[in-house]
């Protein structure tokens, strides 16, 4: 099992803030919009340097999505910022009609996704956003795994023409990816090569998959770990190449089991090569208040849950 050392922990939303700041310096068409959550979205540095390119919308997310769509018509590249819940469910129809169906170049940047938002509880912990966004034609869906990758993804999506949903989170987690990485939309990242089981993880679950990989190695199991940072378009080639070797699959995501990364992978398997697969995901429920770690434990999203799922998947392989 490959060693991933880290010296620092940071939140992925700060990676977004850093990426946006850099875009402010390099791309004059980039503009930012926020619905009264500048601090939470780490947009302050961009705003300080580019006050004329920032639009404070107030607590009016539907209006924010419409204004963003309109800004693209004049050649701007708008990055909207609010919590993941208010970036998706709150404004689904606005995104659907004014952005996705209209093919508008809006970057919907969503923080505090999933359970790890913590104490605010289920009203704010959206676990359905990946599903809603991936179902929209034209939409690209990205969920990076650490600070560096989020920063790189933020920068990369400005150069891509089309609507993007960029999902990140609140808790501080290890920084283990290359600070100089070039982010390629739709290209899975090989975290660890292995032979016994393929673990496809996204977002905060990638670090947990690495922890699980070490536990599995101690048990003599060789896990292949792949970071699916882009859920749509899905890197089917990387998935099929991996499962051709391992013959069983675990998906890991901080999202509802229904409609997330796991379902996208299951579709690829069913169509090409039906194989045993286990989900590590929230089992069709809302979240609740608690610390991020407590919640990940209670809702079955710990490294041990990945280990158990891997062993179940392996045991289901045909002899």
């Amino acid at each position: 099992m490959k060693e991933y050392k880290y010296t620092e922990k940071k939140d992925t939303r700060s990676g977004f803030g850093a990426g946006l700041l850099e875009l402010g310096r390099t791309n004059p068409n980039v503009v930012a919009l926020c619905a009264d959550l500048v601090g939470s979205l780490k947009m302050g540095d961009f705003i300080k340097e580019n006050p004329e390119r920032f639009f404070q919308i107030g607590i009016a997310e539907a209006n924010m999505m419409g204004i963003a769509a309109g800004l693209t018509i004049g050649g701007k590249i708008p990055f909207t910022g609010t919590f993941a819940n208010f970036s998706t469910g709150r404004v689904y129809d606005q995104i659907r009609q004014s952005i996705a169906y209209s093919g508008k170049n809006v970057k919907i940047c969503a923080s505090h996704a999933g359970l790890t938002l913590g104490e605010d509880g289920a009203t704010h912990q959206i676990l359905e956003d990946i599903g809603m966004m991936k179902m929209l034609p034209h939409m690209t869906v990205i969920n990076p795994c650490d600070y560096n990758q989020t920063k790189a993804a933020t920068i990369a999506i400005a150069d891509y023409e089309g609507p993007v949903y960029l999902r990140f989170g609140r808790p501080v987690i290890p920084i283990f990816t290359d600070p100089n990485q070039k982010f390629e939309i739709g290209k899975a990242w090989m975290v660890n090569e292995g032979t016994d089981v393929s673990i496809f993880a996204t977002g905060h679950m990638v670090w947990k998959a690495i922890l699980a990989g070490h536990i599995l190695a101690e048990k003599g199991i060789s896990a292949e770990i792949i970071n699916i940072h882009t859920i749509k378009p899905l890197d089917e080639e990387a998935i099929l190449k991996s499962v051709a070797k391992t013959k069983c699959v675990v998906s890991a995501e901080e999202h509802n089991r229904l409609g997330g990364l796991g379902d996208s992978i299951a579709q690829v398997l069913v169509k090409n090569t039906p194989l045993p697969m286990e989900y590590v995901a929230v089992n069709d429920s809302f979240g609740e208040s608690g610390t991020p770690e407590e919640l990940m434990e209670k809702y079955g999203l710990s490294e041990n849950d990945i280990v158990d799922a891997a062993q179940r998947a392996i045991s289901r392989k045909q002899a």
Binding site: I67, G70, K76
Partner: peptide, 13 residues
């Protein structure tokens, strides 16, 4: 209900 927001965005651009 969406067109005024879009028009505002276009006007801001």
């Amino acid at each position: 209900g969406q067109g005024l927001s879009v028009a505002i965005g276009a006007a801001q651009a």
